[in-house]
Design a protein around this nucleic acid. Structure first.
Lengths: 190, 190
DNA sequence: GTCTATATGCCGATAGAC
DNA sequence: GTCTATCGGCATATAGAC
């Protein structure tokens, strides 16, 4: 009796993504992944070349999810650029907090071997730069974008790693920091 | 002939710190560390209880170094709070870029098991909060501090992970982002 | 496409002699 | 304080049968 075909590449990647989100990237072994797919570890190698390639695929998935989330956040009806940027940056934080493990794997753990070639954080958020230009001025839009990415990435990273241990309102602190940052650019541009 | 005494705990920790900075924390094995100390791996266990404790000690070392660097940066003669904060934040980035691997281990990799109990990032930078209060107002000083930490930590993290891949002047972008952030708080406070 | 069986390696950690 | 010897575990990966 032949072995039934029961899994494929996208399923494996999605399962890996899910397991990483549940238990952390460090805990994912190929044996565990295979078991979750209902097969044995060696069988995985009929679908993936090696573990690094698998993690690259998982990271591509994460990046696409983040891209979708940011695009959705941008669909705010307000034409005010500051309001749009605020919505996007809030959406960024919400995504990271909702998917801490996969976000972390894609953007902080980030072994070059596990990085998708074409996709990094920065080109992905190009649409933001256009809005940013409206409050920072065109010639500073790249710097302003980078600072915004740094602010939100840094905030969620410190937050998720438990580095903000003195209590207080983290939502409020994030909102205030984002507001101050955008306000600063607007003032400098006038 | 008895085996000579040739190493001790501080030496081992310092050596681990150095090896991590050279090759990355993931590459550090106890066997390699022992070899660098001129002994065999099992002998390490006469000095350390386990690897996690060793990494805790390494992280304490890193945190103390950062603390010293920030204190030195604060010794600017200018009484202007914004200038002092700028100097501290520049010093922070300079430290991280100069010690990427150990910085990363202490503040981003950061398994709770490897975290020194008493020392985390936030309480360490309390002096900054006092200066921050002068431009953000006392009631917002914690939020302002957290945003500043997020901005610099996020910037150096993205920078070191190669996420800023579109060229441009990173020093300038960092300076502009810090300036905008501090300016924003000052404006909001008046 | 899946299986069993196995190769190979490194890891952290322990036991006990000197 | 150091050593040799070894344990037990888990990892990625390959070979070849069904």
């Amino acid at each position: 009796m032949p072995y039934p075909a029961q899994t494929d590449y996208p399923t494996i990647v999605a399962m890996a993504h899910q397991l990483i989100e549940q238990e952390g990237a460090e805990q994912l072994s190929l044996a565990q992944l295979a078991a979750a797919c209902g097969i044995k570890a060696p069988s995985l190698y009929r679908h993936i070349p090696n573990k690094a390639a698998l993690l690259r695929a998982v990271n591509s998935l994460t990046i696409n999810e983040l891209f979708t989330a940011l695009a959705a956040a941008q669909q705010t009806t307000s034409p005010d650029p500051q309001a749009q940027l605020t919505a996007i940056l809030y959406g960024y934080r919400a995504f990271a907090l909702a998917h801490p493990q996969t976000y972390n794997l894609a953007f902080t753990t980030l072994d070059p071997a596990e990085r998708p070639e074409t996709q990094t954080l920065e080109p992905m958020v190009l649409p933001i730069q256009d809005i940013m230009a409206q409050i920072s001025g065109a010639e500073h839009s790249l710097a302003a974008l980078r600072g915004a990415l740094a602010l939100v990435h840094g905030f969620v990273s410190l937050e998720m790693k438990g580095q903000f241990q003195r209590g207080g309102d983290l939502d409020g602190a994030f909102a205030a920091a984002v507001h101050a940052y955008l306000q600063g650019w607007q003032v400098m541009n006038t």
